[in-house]
């Protein structure tokens, strides 16, 4: 059970949060222009990394805000949290 540092509320127990999958997958602006394969790539394909992964989380039982997290899935170390819309760190 992690402690998550919500960018809006501070440190809270993991129970208050909901995981929302891989981060930085933008919904295509013009879906109708995409081929079936391109749309399927957006819709279905997700990485599932053992190691450092960029994820979306939602403080569902708190401020209800979505935010991003960089987490090492091999040991659950949370390296960074940052707000939606902020650029992902390069490393």
């Amino acid at each position: 059970m992690f402690i998550i540092n919500c960018p809006y509320c501070g440190e809270r127990d993991q129970q208050e949060f909901k995981a929302g999958g891989e981060a930085h997958i933008e919904r295509p602006k013009q879906p109708t222009e995409l081929s079936d394969d391109e749309w399927a790539e957006y819709l279905f394909m997700r990485k599932n990394i053992k190691g450092v992964q960029f994820e979306r989380w939602n403080h569902a039982h708190g401020c209800r805000k979505w935010f991003n997290m960089v987490r090492d899935t091999s040991n659950d170390e949370i390296k960074l949290v940052y707000k939606m819309g902020e650029k992902p760190p390069l490393e």
Binding site: A60, W66, M84
Partner: peptide, 13 residues
């Protein structure tokens, strides 16, 4: 509600 919030906050801010 969660889904609508998700779109509002992340896709259509």
């Amino acid at each position: 509600l969660g889904k609508l919030e998700d779109y509002l906050q992340t896709e259509w801010p």
